[in-house]
Amino acid sequence: MDVRQARTRSKLRNAIYAIAAEKHVNKISVAEVARAAGITRDTFYRHGTSPVELLASFLREDLDDLGRSIGELPATSGTKLSVFDEPERRLLSHIAERSEIYSNALSPRLAGELHDMLSDYIEQGLILHLERHPQIAPVLPGGLPPEEQRRMLVAYAGAGTVGAIEAWLRGENRGSVEEAARTVIAASPEWWLGRTALAVK
């Protein structure tokens, strides 16, 4: 990406974040984003197909910049904490920092593009985690092939996490990121969590 494109993308990011913090994301128009960013509609369409799609892509970039991905985690933490404690806090910190935007995407669930973006982000990390540590998955003899079982396990975990995030965003008393992270992890099956046997009391 050249300097001019990067500058335009930065203007678009700032504009759409500001607008999405003030109104429901499905009501944002291309014209108002272009106007706020100081660009033409044609320039907008060189970067995205719609405001909500562009918003989702910017939020995904923010998530990708968070650091160590789920796919780089060890199988076990060596402590009473889950291997997912830190990644869960980072994810929920991102949601909290952009809470106005995510709240303005609810009706009552997240707008499709943002819901799918979060699900994809979580599921990609979990797929990599299972590929790296296949021994952690439960043995389910008979029935579906192992690959299909893993796909379903990942989809269930991803959808559950996004559902928990939606419930957190809708709550009147959200509490802290730490409290929310503990709650999500408490809802997860032990085999995912990677606590050492000696550490679990």
Results as ranks from 00 to 15, higher is better:
Glu172Thr: 15
Gly142Phe: 11
His133Gln: 07
Ala37Ser: 11
Asn104His: 04
Ser93Phe: 02
Thr161Tyr: 00
Leu66Tyr: 12
Ala159Gln: 15
Ala186Met: 11
Leu59Ile: 10
Val177Phe: 13
Ile19Lys: 03
Ser77Leu: 07
Arg60Gln: 13
Pro134His: 03
His115Leu: 00
Gly38His: 08
Asp65Val: 04
Val177Trp: 14
Thr43Glu: 12
Ala36His: 04
Thr79Met: 08
Glu53Pro: 00
Gly158Asn: 09
Val139Pro: 02
His133Pro: 02
Val139Asp: 03
Gly48Tyr: 06
Phe58Ile: 09
Leu118Lys: 03
Glu53Leu: 08
Lys80Thr: 01
Val139Met: 02
Val154Ile: 13
Ala186Ser: 12
Phe44Ile: 08
Asp64Trp: 01
Ser69Phe: 03
Glu172Arg: 15
Trp191Asn: 09
Leu91Asp: 07
Gly143His: 07
Arg60Ala: 10
Gly194Tyr: 01
Ser188Tyr: 07
Leu63Phe: 15
Leu169Arg: 09
Gly171Asp: 15
Ala36Pro: 04
Thr40Gly: 13
Val83Gly: 00
Ala6Pro: 00
Glu22Cys: 07
Ala56Lys: 11
Ala96Met: 13
Met152Ala: 07
Val3Asp: 12
Val83Lys: 00
Leu193Asn: 00
Leu198Gln: 06
Leu63Met: 15
Thr8Asp: 09
Ala21Phe: 03
Asn14Thr: 14
Asp42Ser: 12
Thr49Tyr: 08
Ile95Leu: 05
Gly143Thr: 08
Arg89Gly: 01
Leu130Glu: 00
Glu22Val: 05
Arg68Pro: 06
Asp65Met: 07
His47Gly: 10
Trp191Phe: 11
Leu144Cys: 02
Leu92His: 08
Leu12Asp: 05
Ser188Cys: 08
Asp62Ser: 12
Glu178Asp: 15
Arg9Lys: 14
Arg41Gly: 04
Tyr156Val: 15
Gly78Asn: 07
Gln149Ala: 02
Ser119Cys: 15
Tyr156Asp: 14
Glu22Lys: 07
Lys27Gly: 13
Val30Asp: 08
Ala21Tyr: 01
Arg132Ser: 10
Ser69Lys: 12
Ile122Glu: 03
Glu178Asn: 09
Leu118Gly: 03
Asp116Ala: 12
Leu54Trp: 01
Thr183Lys: 10
Ala31Trp: 02
Ala181Trp: 08
Ala159Ser: 15
Glu148Phe: 14
Arg60Ser: 08
Arg98Gln: 09
Ile127Glu: 11
Glu113Gly: 00
Ile19Met: 05
Pro141Ser: 14
Met152Thr: 05
Val177Ala: 09
Tyr102Phe: 14
Val200Lys: 11
Ser82Ile: 06
Glu100Ile: 00
